[in-house]
Design a binder for these strands. Sequence first.
DNA 1: ACGATGATGAAC
DNA 2: TTCATCATCGTA
Length: 175
Amino acid sequence: MTILNPLFFDRPADRVAHDLIGCCLNWTRSDDSHSRMITETEAYIGPHDLASHAARGRTKRTEVMFGEPGTLYLYFVYGMHWMLNVVTGPAGYPAAVLIRAVQDINGPARLTKAMALTGSLNGKQADEENGVWFTDDTRPPRTKVIRSARIGVEYAGPVWSLKPLRFSLRPAKIS
DNA sequence: ACGATGATGAAC
DNA sequence: TTCATCATCGTA
Protein backbone atom coordinates (compact mmCIF):
# COMPACT_ATOMS: atom_id res chain seq x y z
CA MET A 1 0.00 0.00 0.00
CA THR A 2 1.53 3.28 -1.09
CA ILE A 3 0.59 6.88 -0.57
CA LEU A 4 -0.80 8.51 -3.69
CA ASN A 5 1.47 11.44 -4.57
CA PRO A 6 0.87 14.47 -6.81
CA LEU A 7 1.91 12.42 -9.82
CA PHE A 8 -1.15 10.22 -9.40
CA PHE A 9 -3.36 13.30 -9.52
CA ASP A 10 -1.51 14.86 -12.44
CA ARG A 11 -3.89 13.34 -14.95
CA PRO A 12 -7.35 14.19 -16.33
CA ALA A 13 -9.99 14.37 -13.60
CA ASP A 14 -12.14 11.60 -15.04
CA ARG A 15 -9.22 9.16 -15.01
CA VAL A 16 -8.34 10.10 -11.46
CA ALA A 17 -11.97 9.87 -10.35
CA HIS A 18 -12.21 6.40 -11.84
CA ASP A 19 -8.95 5.19 -10.34
CA LEU A 20 -9.76 6.51 -6.86
CA ILE A 21 -12.64 4.05 -6.59
CA GLY A 22 -11.32 1.23 -4.41
CA CYS A 23 -8.48 3.35 -3.07
CA CYS A 24 -8.50 4.51 0.54
CA LEU A 25 -9.16 7.90 2.04
CA ASN A 26 -7.15 8.31 5.24
CA TRP A 27 -7.44 10.95 7.90
CA THR A 28 -6.33 11.63 11.42
CA ARG A 29 -8.51 13.25 14.01
CA SER A 30 -7.41 13.80 17.60
CA ASP A 31 -4.71 11.12 17.46
CA ASP A 32 -7.05 8.62 15.87
CA SER A 33 -6.28 7.49 12.37
CA HIS A 34 -8.98 6.35 10.00
CA SER A 35 -8.94 4.61 6.65
CA ARG A 36 -11.92 3.86 4.45
CA MET A 37 -12.35 2.65 0.91
CA ILE A 38 -13.62 5.25 -1.55
CA THR A 39 -16.87 4.15 -3.15
CA GLU A 40 -18.11 7.20 -5.06
CA THR A 41 -16.49 10.15 -6.83
CA GLU A 42 -17.34 12.79 -9.40
CA ALA A 43 -15.05 14.42 -11.96
CA TYR A 44 -15.16 18.13 -12.79
CA ILE A 45 -13.00 18.05 -15.83
CA GLY A 46 -12.11 21.60 -16.79
CA PRO A 47 -13.13 25.21 -17.44
CA HIS A 48 -15.38 24.09 -20.31
CA ASP A 49 -17.32 21.84 -17.91
CA LEU A 50 -20.39 23.97 -17.14
CA ALA A 51 -21.05 22.02 -13.94
CA SER A 52 -17.63 22.96 -12.56
CA HIS A 53 -17.01 25.99 -10.41
CA ALA A 54 -14.10 26.66 -12.74
CA ALA A 55 -16.52 27.43 -15.57
CA ARG A 56 -16.83 30.86 -13.92
CA GLY A 57 -13.14 31.41 -14.39
CA ARG A 58 -10.46 32.13 -11.84
CA THR A 59 -12.07 33.62 -8.74
CA LYS A 60 -11.19 33.72 -5.09
CA ARG A 61 -13.05 30.44 -4.56
CA THR A 62 -11.82 28.59 -7.62
CA GLU A 63 -8.22 29.69 -7.21
CA VAL A 64 -7.11 26.42 -5.63
CA MET A 65 -8.51 24.45 -8.57
CA PHE A 66 -5.75 26.04 -10.64
CA GLY A 67 -3.10 24.79 -8.23
CA GLU A 68 -0.90 21.74 -7.98
CA PRO A 69 -2.37 18.28 -8.51
CA GLY A 70 -3.11 16.65 -5.18
CA THR A 71 -4.24 19.89 -3.56
CA LEU A 72 -7.34 19.68 -1.37
CA TYR A 73 -10.25 21.85 -2.47
CA LEU A 74 -12.79 22.38 0.30
CA TYR A 75 -15.79 24.62 -0.14
CA PHE A 76 -18.99 25.43 1.68
CA VAL A 77 -22.44 24.88 0.15
CA TYR A 78 -26.09 25.27 1.07
CA GLY A 79 -25.15 27.29 4.10
CA MET A 80 -24.15 24.21 6.06
CA HIS A 81 -22.10 21.62 4.23
CA TRP A 82 -18.44 21.22 3.36
CA MET A 83 -17.38 19.38 0.20
CA LEU A 84 -14.07 17.55 -0.14
CA ASN A 85 -12.32 17.62 -3.51
CA VAL A 86 -8.84 16.90 -4.82
CA VAL A 87 -7.32 18.99 -7.57
CA THR A 88 -6.17 17.11 -10.65
CA GLY A 89 -3.58 17.99 -13.23
CA PRO A 90 -1.94 19.53 -14.97
CA ALA A 91 -0.99 22.43 -12.72
CA GLY A 92 -2.65 25.61 -13.91
CA TYR A 93 -5.58 23.71 -15.41
CA PRO A 94 -8.69 23.91 -13.19
CA ALA A 95 -10.13 20.46 -12.57
CA ALA A 96 -10.95 18.39 -9.51
CA VAL A 97 -12.54 15.24 -8.16
CA LEU A 98 -15.33 15.40 -5.59
CA ILE A 99 -15.17 12.62 -3.00
CA ARG A 100 -18.83 11.71 -2.59
CA ALA A 101 -18.69 8.63 -0.43
CA VAL A 102 -16.50 6.09 1.30
CA GLN A 103 -17.42 2.72 2.76
CA ASP A 104 -20.27 3.13 5.27
CA ILE A 105 -20.40 6.89 4.85
CA ASN A 106 -22.68 7.95 2.01
CA GLY A 107 -22.90 11.52 0.86
CA PRO A 108 -20.26 14.21 0.50
CA ALA A 109 -21.55 16.33 3.38
CA ARG A 110 -21.80 13.40 5.75
CA LEU A 111 -18.25 12.46 4.83
CA THR A 112 -16.77 15.83 5.78
CA LYS A 113 -18.88 15.84 8.92
CA ALA A 114 -17.53 12.42 9.90
CA MET A 115 -14.01 13.64 9.20
CA ALA A 116 -14.66 16.90 11.09
CA LEU A 117 -13.32 18.77 8.07
CA THR A 118 -13.87 22.44 7.43
CA GLY A 119 -12.13 24.93 5.19
CA SER A 120 -8.88 24.97 7.13
CA LEU A 121 -7.26 22.46 4.78
CA ASN A 122 -8.40 24.23 1.63
CA GLY A 123 -5.39 24.68 -0.63
CA LYS A 124 -3.20 22.22 1.31
CA GLN A 125 -1.66 19.12 -0.17
CA ALA A 126 -3.27 15.77 0.54
CA ASP A 127 -0.56 14.16 2.65
CA GLU A 128 0.03 12.62 6.05
CA GLU A 129 1.37 15.82 7.50
CA ASN A 130 -1.89 17.62 6.81
CA GLY A 131 -3.90 14.70 8.16
CA VAL A 132 -5.77 13.84 4.97
CA TRP A 133 -4.23 11.55 2.40
CA PHE A 134 -4.95 8.85 -0.11
CA THR A 135 -3.48 5.39 -0.41
CA ASP A 136 -3.40 2.96 -3.25
CA ASP A 137 -5.42 -0.13 -2.77
CA THR A 138 -7.23 -2.59 -4.91
CA ARG A 139 -10.89 -2.97 -5.52
CA PRO A 140 -12.45 -6.07 -4.01
CA PRO A 141 -12.92 -8.83 -6.56
CA ARG A 142 -16.35 -9.25 -8.17
CA THR A 143 -16.92 -5.53 -8.12
CA LYS A 144 -16.67 -2.97 -10.84
CA VAL A 145 -16.79 0.74 -11.35
CA ILE A 146 -19.97 2.06 -12.91
CA ARG A 147 -20.50 5.51 -14.42
CA SER A 148 -23.57 7.69 -14.18
CA ALA A 149 -24.66 11.33 -14.32
CA ARG A 150 -23.41 13.69 -11.66
CA ILE A 151 -25.70 14.71 -8.82
CA GLY A 152 -27.19 18.16 -8.36
CA VAL A 153 -25.77 19.82 -11.46
CA GLU A 154 -28.88 20.31 -13.59
CA TYR A 155 -28.10 24.00 -13.80
CA ALA A 156 -25.26 23.06 -16.16
CA GLY A 157 -27.74 22.15 -18.90
CA PRO A 158 -28.55 18.74 -20.39
CA VAL A 159 -25.23 18.24 -22.16
CA TRP A 160 -23.05 18.65 -19.10
CA SER A 161 -25.42 17.44 -16.41
CA LEU A 162 -25.94 14.12 -18.18
CA LYS A 163 -22.32 13.31 -18.88
CA PRO A 164 -21.34 10.09 -17.09
CA LEU A 165 -18.72 11.65 -14.83
CA ARG A 166 -19.88 10.07 -11.60
CA PHE A 167 -18.02 6.92 -10.64
CA SER A 168 -19.19 4.42 -8.08
CA LEU A 169 -18.45 0.94 -6.90
CA ARG A 170 -21.06 -1.60 -7.72
CA PRO A 171 -20.92 -4.16 -4.92
CA ALA A 172 -20.77 -7.82 -5.72
CA LYS A 173 -24.14 -9.42 -5.96
CA ILE A 174 -25.07 -11.29 -2.82
CA SER A 175 -25.71 -14.81 -3.94
C1' DA B 1 -41.65 18.07 -1.47
C1' DC B 2 -39.25 21.34 0.98
C1' DG B 3 -36.78 24.19 4.47
C1' DA B 4 -32.38 25.18 6.75
C1' DT B 5 -28.70 28.54 6.15
C1' DG B 6 -24.67 31.45 4.32
C1' DA B 7 -21.15 31.99 0.70
C1' DT B 8 -20.68 33.02 -4.05
C1' DG B 9 -20.82 35.55 -8.27
C1' DA B 10 -23.31 38.43 -11.36
C1' DA B 11 -26.23 42.21 -12.08
C1' DC B 12 -27.47 46.68 -11.05
C1' DT C 1 -25.68 46.40 -2.49
C1' DT C 2 -29.04 43.22 -3.74
C1' DC C 3 -30.43 38.82 -5.51
C1' DA C 4 -30.85 34.10 -7.25
C1' DT C 5 -28.48 30.13 -6.87
C1' DC C 6 -26.28 26.37 -4.86
C1' DA C 7 -21.31 19.63 -6.44
C1' DT C 8 -26.84 18.58 0.42
C1' DC C 9 -29.44 16.37 3.94
C1' DG C 10 -33.16 15.41 7.15
C1' DT C 11 -37.84 15.46 7.82
C1' DA C 12 -42.24 14.75 5.74
